[in-house]
């Protein structure tokens, strides 16, 4: 008896969400199979890779990242260099300087940075806030306003500030809304429900369902994404069919494995290599679990993951 392959066909699919405009526009989602299960059906638009840059410039970046951006003097320079990175589909600007417990930059200053970056590149732009819900609730609507017509994705609207960000990005200024929840399928769904109840079209929503570096409670990330994709495809759960975007770099470069110096951990070897490993492996695991887009920052990671995606679809 020959092998009887039984493909898993789903009539449902993940919604396709466009980011950016013009030639370099990308579409997230659209697949009607589990991640990379091309033997079952359509993989849609294929996963995308974003390059993270920060309003804080390059001072705190790993050496190899600094080296890549050598010679860049302005945020516009950095942004241009980021979009030119091999394997990059879009650029993600993190406005981490807005954190009231950090640099606490003003909203005007950050909006100006976002504008500078958006004007410098032709690739789609994702703008991430500073993670402080109060500040983001004020900052991201202003960014959405300033970047009208660019079709950017704002990360993130959370349970606490989804109204302001959802209304500004999704309704007033016709951008895309990132819905961020904390590694739980029900929270993810609930947030999508309330955002769409605001009037935001489901096709304008991308989820960030939470993440971690591998080894750091990543089990929850795997199961959350596994379950979301299963509910979206096999149960046709419309409130979980939004594509998933996962910021990887901000998690992986903050763990010990990517930060401990070679003096502190001589047996661990080269610091840069460790950082790349953490980033690459976390990205691969996320893509296999269900991320439709990952955000990375090291040129080698971006190139490797982009290549892997290409090989798998």
């Amino acid at each position: 008896m020959p092998f009887n392959c039984k493909p898993q066909k789903f009539s449902a699919s993940i919604k396709a969400v466009d980011l950016g405009t013009g030639d370099k526009k990308v579409t997230l989602g659209g697949e009607s199979v589990f991640p990379f299960y091309s033997f079952d059906g359509s993989e849609g638009n294929g996963a995308k890779v974003g390059v993270e840059i920060s309003d804080m410039g390059l001072d705190h970046e790993p050496e190899a990242v600094k080296a890549y951006y050598a010679g860049c003097e302005t945020m516009a320079d950095i942004a241009k260099k980021a979009e030119a990175m091999e394997g990059a589909d879009f650029v993600c600007l993190r406005l981490e300087g807005g954190d009231p417990n950090g640099a606490d930059k003003s909203i005007e200053e950050l909006v100006a940075v976002a504008k500078e970056v958006a004007d410098a590149i032709t690739a789609p732009l994702v703008v991430e806030g500073c993670k402080n819900v109060e500040k983001d609730g004020q900052l991201l609507p202003k960014v959405a306003e300033a970047l009208q017509g660019k079709n950017v994705l704002l990360l993130s609207a959370k349970e606490e500030d989804y109204k302001a960000i959802g209304a500004a990005a999704g309704l007033a200024y016709d951008q895309k809304v990132g819905a961020e929840s904390a590694v739980d399928i029900n929270l993810a769904k609930q947030l999508n429900v309330v955002i769409t109840q605001l009037g935001v079209k489901p096709e304008s929503v991308v989820m960030n369902v939470g993440t971690a570096a591998v080894g750091y409670g990543y089990d929850y990330v795997i199961s959350t994404m596994d379950r979301i994709k299963a509910a979206a495809l096999s149960q046709d759960d419309k409130m979980l069919q939004m594509p998933i975007i996962t910021p990887i770099a901000s998690e992986t470069w903050a763990v010990k494995e990517s930060m401990a110096t070679e003096e502190d951990a001589p047996e661990w070897g080269n610091l840069d290599a460790r950082g790349v490993s953490m980033e690459v492996q976390t990205a691969a695991a996320s893509l296999v679990s269900g991320s439709d887009a990952v955000i990375l920052k090291h040129p080698q990671s971006v190139a490797t993951i982009a290549k892997m995606i290409k090989e798998l679809i």
């Binding site: 306003e145 109204k163 302001a164 959802g166 209304a167 500004a168 309704l171 007033a172 200024y173 009037g199």
Partner: peptide, 12 residues
Amino acid sequence: IRELGVPLVTGD
């Protein structure tokens, strides 16, 4: 209107 609309939607 866009500016006022956001706080209206959020309930602010």
